[in-house]
Design a protein around this nucleic acid. Structure first.
Lengths: 198, 198
DNA sequence: TAGCCCATGTAATTGGTTACATGATTGA
DNA sequence: TCAATCATGTAACCAATTACATGGGCTA
């Protein structure tokens, strides 16, 4: 029973900066997508709910035009801010122990586990599986280092920075380990060498 | 769109050995639980479906008693075997590339990312978070090495063994890396040392 | 004025777990 | 004969994604 982690993800994101639902989506997909994602189908309903519960408030932004002309236009977008009650709820959740694991379904391992059933091409497709996976994590490593540099430059003084770097470091550790695993696996799966020329 | 991986998990498991739904549950939770799980609510419906599609057949086992007495008792349990068509379906799936990643929601990183919002106790609960996580992966490492030894001993000749060992190796690489990350994180989060006695 | 983001939302569907109901078999 | 385990299944629920509908604002 994961118990509503989306609400805390949203609450947490709004402590970084007040945001609209649209902003939240981008925050998740551009900022923390390597360990967390959210879809509109989650975000908007949860925002409505959090507002009802008084954990966030909506400081509706006026449009430029509406401000200028005084037209009583409905706010162009809803910008949500965490209330003290929201901060407390978040703090309570943060103090609880985390679910032991996330991501109990690793498709690549399932395929590898049964790889021999792949017939003639079994070894070949296993190697391709591993090679793709390696490329993936090598690419991730590059993004981690780039992100780290950007964060250190742009948010050098941000009090949350040390924690953000910790999450990046997690990603780096895992991806480095997985690249190493891919290399080892590649050797294991290597096609039997063609007989050496005489 | 993860697209029905359960059917292939079940199909694959049945290539290892014909099994009942009950057996399958145990196979997943005792054999491969570190990278895959299935619940009854998935297993039984999918078995019914696979049977309809002709990918598995049910060689119903008779009870001992029924065999002895000739009573037309209904089979005690349904034991499923993969058909050639089932093997083909599995092989096709194995040849497809795997989903890039599994487990996009790492609760511990979400908590760590927002950890500073935890108030006074922020650093403390972050440290506990990391410590629990470390204990977890240290324990996992132990089970991996134990499982590896057992597999090598009990299934030395099994043609699937090299692939099984690869999945274990994945786990070892990741858990070792995460233990190392926890140690580094622990140092980062270390409480400011109490002022040294004069 | 067309095309592209910005922005909000919902309905349908999927994938999965949990909890429960039911009953047979086995062994103490 | 009681408890544990084997065994099959389903209904309710939950979390989450996808696809769609809708429309405002900005700029080339």
């Amino acid at each position: 029973m994961p118990e509503n982690r989306t609400r805390y993800a949203v609450l947490g994101a709004l402590t970084v900066e007040p945001m609209s639902g649209y902003d939240l989506k981008r925050f998740f997909e551009q900022g923390v997508s390597f360990f967390w994602t959210e879809s509109y189908g989650q975000i908007y309903p949860i925002l409505k709910q959090l507002k009802i519960e008084g954990l966030v408030v909506d400081a509706g932004e006026k449009t430029e035009a509406a401000t200028r002309t005084g037209v009583p236009a409905h706010p162009r977008r809803a910008v949500y801010t965490v209330t003290p009650a929201g901060r407390e709820a978040l703090a309570r959740w943060l103090a609880e122990p985390a679910e032991p694991q996330g991501g109990r379904r690793l498709e690549i391992l399932l395929k590898l586990f049964f790889a021999r059933q792949g017939g003639d091409r079994a070894a070949e497709s296993a190697r391709r599986l591993v090679a793709d996976f390696r490329a993936n994590h090598a690419a991730l490593l590059a993004t981690y280092t780039a992100t780290e540099a950007r964060l250190r430059a742009e948010h050098a003084a941000h009090p949350d920075l040390p924690f953000w770097l910790l999450t990046l470091s997690y990603g780096e550790h895992v991806s480095r380990a997985l690249v190493a695993w891919c290399d080892a696996a590649g050797r294991t799966l290597a096609a039997p060498p063609t007989p050496p020329a005489p």
